[in-house]
Every structure is written in C-alpha cells, then in structure tokens.
Design a protein around this nucleic acid. Structure first.
Lengths: 119, 119, 119, 119
DNA sequence: GTGGTCTAGACCACC
DNA sequence: GTGGTCTAGACCACG
C-alpha cells in the first residue's frame, strides 16, 4: 500500500512517485488518463494544490502531458521498460551505496536480503 | 566522500546521519569526542547553528551526550552492532519494498545487484 | 498575567510552559488550535523562531501535533486531568523537598501557607 | 542529597543556593569558613571556575565575605532567622502562585501535601 | 497564512 | 574554546 510521510521529502514528489509506480507496475499505460487532481487529492489525503504541483512535476519529467479541458495523460511515446530499468538501476545503486557507506560488505547485504525474503 | 544535498531533506538530519555513518563504519567509537560544532560547520559548509541542531538530534536519539564547555561525545553505552543490524535491516526492507512497489521480482533485483557489483 | 523572564531558563521552554498552563486551567482543550507562531510571538514579545521551538518542544512532549499549513493543535487524546495531577504532585514534592533541605518542618510550612493565604 | 541539574538554571546559582541551604539548616554558622573553591568543586562535580562564580554571587548577596589569603567566610552579622523566614516566604509564595496559575484550589493543594507527607 | 529550515551574528554559561 | 539560546530575516512546502 502507498503511504505518505512528510518526513521523507516534499509531499508533491511522493505523490508524483506514486504515479510513476503505477506506470511501472502496468496499472497505468501510455495514453491513459490520470485521475483528476481532486480525485487523487481525496484518495491520498492531501490538498488538491499539492496534487497539481505533482502533475507539474510529472510534466517536467516528460512523463505526462496536460490537455486543457480534458485532463492529464500519460505520454503516448513513453518507454516504460526503459524507465523501469533506469529506476531499478537507481534503486540498486543507492542501496549498495548506503550499505557501503556504513561499511557493510556485499555478503552481509545478500544475507540480509535472503533473510528478509524468507520472512 | 560525504555530500550534502538540500533536496534530500533537512541539512541538520543529513549531518546527524553522517555522524551515525562514521559510527557504523567504525571511524567513531563509543566515548569518542565529535568535532566541535564550529569545526564541523566549516567542514561540511553549513551554519554552526545547523550543526548544533544536528547534535541535539543525535542526543534525542540517545547516540551522543553533550558536556557543556567540553564538547559532544558518543555515548559510552552505545551498542554499535545492534544499531548497524537495525540499519541494514531497515535499508534492505526499504529496498525490497521499493522494488515490489514497481512490480520487480526478486530474481530481477538480484540480477541488478550482481550486474552493479561487477561494474 | 504571563511574564517571560530570561533568568528563568530558555524562553522557548517558558512559552511551552505557558501553553501547558492554559491547558491545565481549561483555557485550552484537546483539539483546540493554538495561536499561530507569529501571533504568539508578537503577544509574548519574542522571535517567531523561538515560538516555533516551543511548538517543537510541545510536540516532543506529545501534548500537541502540528499540521503543516494549518497550525498547531492540542492532541485530541490528551488526558488533562492526568497531566494536572502529575503537575500538582511534582510541584508539591519539589516544595516540600526545598523546605526540608533548609530544615523547615511541616508545621512551619503549613503555618507559612495559612499566613500567605490570608493575605 | 544535593543534586545539580543543568536544566534548572545556571550551575553557579545552584551551587550558591546549596551554600545558603547549609546556612539555613545550621550546618554553617556566621563566621564559619567555607570549603575552598577547589574542594567544593570536586565535591559537587563542577569546574572550580564555576564555584568561584558562586562565591562572587554569595558576596554580592552579602552573605559571605572573602579575606585574601584566608578564604571565604560567612558574614558575622548574618541574621539567619531572618534569611530563613524570607526564604520560606518566597518558596511558599512561588508554590501557591504555580498552583494558582494552573487553576488548582487551596483545598486541592492541601490534599496533595497531606498525601505527599503520608508517603 | 501555516509551520519548517537555514543563515548570520550576538551573548551566555561553562571548562 | 565548547555547546545553548535568541534575534532578524530569508526561502520553502503546504492549504
């Protein structure tokens, strides 16, 4: 389930992320129409203004486009697989970097993962 | 090397985190004296007040204790291994959660890690 | 009336205390919104930042919660009577301890109180 | 037993208070010589400089006088009873004021005292 | 308009 | 020199 945390950076970025997640999971496809700002606002429990900011963020990232009077849509030329690979890569890099920065070896990391997966 | 990024949340928390990292890497041990607020401020390029806020954060987390006129010290009864395990666990959980939330399987994740490690 | 005294410890704690007092006196109830930091700052004659520090103190004590963009509120689940009893107890203990530490008996203390009350 | 608390105002005032307490309890009499700054410093666990500041405070209050090369002495013309009454009065006033400021009646206060005394 | 963070610079208590 | 508090004023995220 998706959860907002004011401690983890700007809400509007978190909301934008959640849209990207839906894309990557296939719950949203190129050309699809996003929920309206108002709907999304109610759904995730933030102010509509915040959602609007999120949409602007997505547009800036060239993931969506806004058609006046119609709504916000996922760009038709989005290459989801490419975006997904980039995201996985980024997450992995960050994860390994964090571990390295506290002096944890790969072996320990893999152990931790296996342990976590089993539970 | 350690870098501050205003986009990644409050500077004072990042500074506090960097101290925790030094602890986990063994560069800092229970009983050790931290750099003075003024020194650290110059070193990481922030205002001394910001560093002091970091110190207060660390004290709230019961990681350090401050002795007025003497400095700020890592608590003698700090259990580093425990803190480290908790951190690794947290990072791993978060990593796997993120992957899952974009619909990536464990196999893909492990592949990504192996690929990253080789580079 | 409420008065700040730089000699009596940090201003931000005094301001926090004054909020607690209002709570205990019933002038403030669970769910109520506190005055905004800026208002309070003008009212008591300190810097807005100092008031914000007070708010953070109150939040740390789990007396209030803050909603960004909306304000700071007394927690709905605050048990005022419990807090009040604890405070009275603390004050009484401290008072008797102080008297004892200067060698004053209970009888003398009660006499002093009666005398004071009459005036 | 006497305890220092950095949270309760300047240490040097607390140390000065502890000397006054000894006076009021009769453990120290007009004309008596105080412990040296160094001794007291070790005894209460603060820096000698802090104790020296305390002595200056006591001198300012006209409770002690310093004889160069001999030490610090309680003034011969000190009227302990008068000082004691003043102190009791002050403590009582403060106590009642605090209670009043949180809306506690005298009856409740006396109940609290009786309860505390019995324990 | 609301609180949160940061900077710059001052003064204090303590060692 | 050490940390702690306060001020003044700026900018940000959020509603």
């Amino acid at each position: 389930m998706f959860k907002l945390d004011p401690q983890k950076g700007p809400l509007f970025k978190q909301v934008a992320d959640s849209v990207v997640q839906q894309l990557l999971k296939g719950e949203l496809r190129p050309g699809d129409k996003l929920h309206s700002a108002r709907e999304l606002a109610v759904k995730v429990g933030v102010n509509p203004n915040t959602v609007i900011q999120s949409f602007q963020e997505l547009e800036k990232l060239e993931i969506t486009e806004t058609k006046r009077g119609l709504g916000t849509f996922v760009k038709r030329d989005m290459n989801i697989e490419k975006l997904k690979l980039a995201k996985v890569n980024e997450l992995t890099k960050e994860f390994l970097f964090q571990l390295k920065s506290i002096g944890v070896s790969m072996e320990e990391a893999l152990l931790a993962i296996r342990k976590e997966v089993k539970e």
